[in-house]
């Protein structure tokens, strides 16, 4: 299955498209510390791709490479059929890659709606003088984007907190607002860094449902990092396993679960 370039339908009827992003032989170093060693994998359109591994395996570093916070010393990144030059994070956002953060990075002084509206930042094109006057084309533009944001807010069931400052919201809801902001960018690829970290079972179930719904309804390609193995096995179409910055395995959840190297990394092995 790894070699096919065309789209296909999985056993449970999910449509997986062609390769949208490809990481080729990525190596990332911080001084003498090697965070990622020669990792290669791809992400296909429409799939949910999980990156798993023990603490310090280089998962977040990998996400930071994809989103441009880090620049690998070696290797190539191919996105939508083109080799990507070294870009700044905001330029990569312009290319259609959105993300959430492990430790939640919201604009705490703003309300939920305002936070989600920042996701439309790149799509607001009208001159600031028009915006200042709030008339004509700028107003129309604002209304269009505002409506889209409200739809996303409804979709993620956070209407009740739409005008609350996000700094005061409970953790689980903040995670959801962050997802809403990323979705407002209408990304081609959505990166989720531990979307369920620190949540209780109920919140995890909600978040899993939202991730599946986003993938299903908007057709968004998702790459996520997660620690909870049962969640990963339920959500992901394919899984990359990292350990100490090296690739251990790449395949469907079933294949990965049976992989001896993966079992050793997770359960420990006698040396």
């Amino acid at each position: 299955m790894k070699d096919t370039k065309e789209s296909f339908v999985t056993e449970d009827g999910r449509h997986i498209g062609s390769v949208i992003m490809e990481m080729r032989n990525i190596t990332l170093r911080f001084g003498g510390v090697v965070a990622i060693t020669n990792a290669s994998f791809d992400i296909r359109e429409g799939e949910i791709r999980a990156i798993i591994g023990p603490n310090g395996a280089g998962k977040s570093s990998m996400l930071n490479v994809i989103n441009g916070f880090y620049h690998p010393q070696e290797g190539e990144i191919w996105f939508r059929g083109k080799k990507r030059p070294s870009l700044r994070p905001y330029e990569i956002a312009e290319q259609g890659i959105a993300r959430t953060f492990q430790n939640i990075a919201l604009f705490k002084g703003m309300t939920t709606v305002e936070n989600v509206m920042t996701g439309r930042q790149l799509m607001l094109k009208k001159n600031f003088l028009w915006q200042l006057l709030r008339i004509g084309p700028a107003l129309d533009e604002e209304v269009v984007h505002r409506r889209r944001c409200e739809e996303i807010i409804d979709f993620l069931e956070i209407q009740a907190i739409r005008n609350s400052p996000v700094g005061s919201l409970p953790y689980g809801l903040q995670k959801r607002v962050e997802l809403a902001r990323a979705l407002a960018m209408e990304p081609k690829l959505l990166l989720l860094d531990e979307p369920m970290a620190g949540m209780n079972v109920e919140e995890k179930e909600d978040m899993s449902r939202f991730i599946l719904d986003v993938n299903d309804q908007y057709g968004t390609t998702i790459a996520l990092i997660e620690h909870d193995m049962s969640v990963v096995m339920d959500l992901a179409d394919r899984v990359v396993v990292l350990d100490y910055g090296k690739m251990l395995a790449d395949g469907t959840p079933d294949e990965v679960q049976k992989n001896q190297a993966v079992i050793d990394a997770y359960l420990g092995v006698e040396h």
């Binding site: 905001y90 956002a93 312009e94 919201l106 930042q121």
Partner: peptide, 9 residues
């Protein structure tokens, strides 16, 4: 970080 991630330079 969040600003960068939504495309603000």
């Amino acid at each position: 970080q969040a600003s960068l991630s939504v495309g603000i330079s």
